[in-house]
Nucleic acid binder design. Structure first.
Length: 570
RNA sequence: GCCGUCGUAGCUUAGUGGUAAAGCACCUCUUUGGUAAAGAGGAGAGCACGGGUUCAAUCCCCGUCGACGGCUCCA
């Protein structure tokens, strides 16, 4: 029977470890699983593996694959396992920790035996085509207090054609990288003189952001959200009450000392919104109360984790906090999820990953069960498949995240909806009930696009920089064939701009072919060519992105076409 | 922050122990051209920054900063 791809890749990991054992006997193998598209194996070795080492390893691996060693497994006792790995503390540690009752197995190919739970191809020859791709540091068991190991990444497939295809896809993905397109399309930059993780939105990026913002605002208005605006810095006192200093300090910028007070850049918008809630007596008749803000927050991220627009130190959330009665919780949560799905659909994302993160077990309270149940019910109502991340929730409660993938397949969290019984308690929030007594409201924290920066980065990659007409920074460029048509081109552009569209005129002293090429690489949806004929007829020749068809139509007809496309958000 | 790789004009890259080359972009001129690059000329980097070795360093060594790929963490 043919091995599955994960089996093949897992086998490739063993082959790699075998090759390492042969060429670098001092390296201690630790763990080496199959992953999406390939495999990795972590080794403990003092010397770093160099790119040249990888080539040598690939050569040895090819021999091991060609030898087609049979993968043979045998079950051993815990003591035997520990004894056979007495020079490898990592393997011994794993052997010690395998739960009682679970079999402990050793697998051998040729001269290499590994502690492994199984799931391999029958022999090494099954590894049709592979390539070692990179080496990276990785902590033993993902714990930064434990030793750093060297992780060798590889990709493996049934055959050469599949491998080549995968490598080609990788290259294409790199062409779509938002950091690359961001520079090419003049959308944004991150400036060394300002510091990493701080985004400068250029005009063409900022206009897209404005469009995104107004689209989101429309949804907020329809769903009864009220706008609020809160300061970017606040006294430390606020974050003592909220618990951020206690639970989130590692992600906060340090204190700003002014006169006798210490201030902090805000890491989250919730405390500010809570202060507004608390500023007056609230009645059950006021609830649910939904405060929304495009709130810019600052979080300290360690330098090594910054990544384009996806991991930054200052970002703007499409944030909102809903204050409701416990009875309203379910309905509010579902309404929020509904809006999240609507947004993502409008932005053209199709594949999502839903992750329910529960609260850290050390903080769990009985209300968490209520919160989690609300989230699970909502997921069921919408029939959404989801994963569970135990303990991955916010410090104040469990949450539901909506993730998308970037061009290279890395998942990024965009939307998040969180249920919170804790902050209302810490801030002693209340509302006057129908019974005349005070009650504690429940909060929902929600950012549906997540951060505008990350959303934008993912949009750029999703569209490969070719924004649909409703989002494109420049929707149409009027391109005169010679300078004689410049006045007409300006008139046409003025009409478009007057109708609310984003248009430019290309007045450069270049031939038409050059201009077309320029605007094609800028991925503008419409290039409107104006020559002698068009001027005489009051028309434009439409060169639409993604189509070879050229049409000469009246300016009015083009306006209608553009209007229709923008309204349809195509 | 940690491990690894990298750092030459705005961008992409070449290059050498004896003060750096090209294409694109930019500017000027010629050209007024019909759907992915017209022609010519010009300007632009002392080779990320700081030390060291050397008669001499962009090239060798050390440190710092930054970027990239991961680890950890999160929108």
């Amino acid at each position: 029977m043919r091995a599955s791809l994960p089996e093949l890749r897992h086998t490739a990991a063993h082959v790699l470890a075998y090759a390492v054992q042969d060429l670098f006997p001092e390296a201690k193998p630790t763990i080496g699983p199959a992953i999406e598209n390939g495999f990795y194996y972590d080794f403990d070795r003092a010397e770093p593996f160099t790119p040249h080492d990888l080539e040598r390893l690939e050569g040895r691996m090819a021999e091991i694959v060609a030898a087609d060693y049979k993968m043979t497994g045998r079950e051993v006792s815990r003591d035997q396992a520990i004894a056979s790995f007495k020079s490898n503390p990592y393997k011994a540690e794993i052997a010690r920790e395998i739960p009682d009752g679970e079999p402990i197995t050793l697998y051998t190919i040729g001269e290499f035996t590994d502690l492994c739970r199984g799931g391999h191809a029958e022999s090494t020859g099954a590894v049709g085509a592979f390539k070692l791709t990179s080496v990276a540091g990785a902590y033993w068991r993902g714990d930064e207090h434990k030793p750093m190991l060297q992780r060798i990444y590889g990709t493996a497939w049934y055959d050469r054609a599949q491998l080549d295809d995968y490598l080609a896809r990788l290259e294409e993905a790199q062409r779509r990288d938002h950091r690359k397109l961001g520079a090419e399309l003049d959308l944004f930059s991150i400036e060394e003189d300002a510091g990493g993780g701080l985004v400068f939105w250029h005009p063409k990026g900022a206009i897209v952001r404005e469009i995104v913002e107004s689209f989101i605002r429309e949804g907020l208005r329809e769903r009864g959200y009220l706008p609020v605006v809160t300061p970017h810095v606040a006294s430390e006192r606020l974050y003592e009450i909220s618990g951020h200093l206690e639970n989130f300090a590692a992600n906060m910028f340090g204190p700003l000392e002014v006169e006798t007070q210490r201030f902090r850049l805000k890491p989250m918008n919730c405390p500010g919104h809570i202060l507004i809630y608390r500023s007056r007596l609230r009645s059950y008749r006021d609830l649910p109360l939904r405060f929304s803000e495009f709130g810019t927050v600052y979080r300290f991220e360690r330098s090594g984790v910054l990544h384009g627009l996806n991991r930054v130190r200052g970002f703007t959330q499409d944030d909102a906090h809903l204050f409701c009665t416990p009875e309203q919780l379910q309905g509010e949560f579902e309404q929020t999820l509904d809006e999240a799905l609507r947004l993502m659909k409008a932005f053209g994302f199709a594949e999502f990953q839903y992750v329910l993160s529960t609260r850290d077990p050390k903080d769990r309270a009985e209300t968490d069960a209520v919160a989690e149940a609300a989230i699970r019910r909502a997921l069921e109502r919408y029939d959404l498949p989801f994963e569970v991340d135990e303990g991955g929730g916010a410090f104040y409660g469990p949450k539901l995240d909506v993730n998308v993938r970037d061009a290279l397949g890395r998942p990024w969290q965009l939307g998040t909806v969180q249920v919170d019984f804790v902050l209302p308690e810490r801030f002693e929030l209340k509302y006057r009930g129908a019974d005349g007594a005070d009650h504690r409201p429940v909060m929902i924290h929600r950012a549906l696009a997540g951060s505008l920066e990350r959303l934008f980065g993912n949009l750029v990659e999703h569209y490969g920089g070719a924004f649909p007409a409703w989002l494109a920074p420049v929707q149409a460029v009027v391109t005169p064939i010679s300078e004689h048509q410049v006045p007409y081109a300006r008139e046409v552009a003025a009409r478009l701009i007057g109708a609310g569209f984003r248009a430019e005129v290309d007045e450069s002293n270049e031939k038409l072919g050059y201009k077309i090429r320029h605007w094609k690489t800028q991925k503008v949806p419409y290039i409107l060519v104006a020559g002698k004929q068009e001027v005489a007829d009051g028309t434009v020749n439409v060169n639409a992105r993604g189509s070879d068809e050229k049409r000469t139509i009246s300016v009015g007809a083009f306006l209608e076409e553009l209007r229709a496309r923008v309204e349809a958000k195509e």
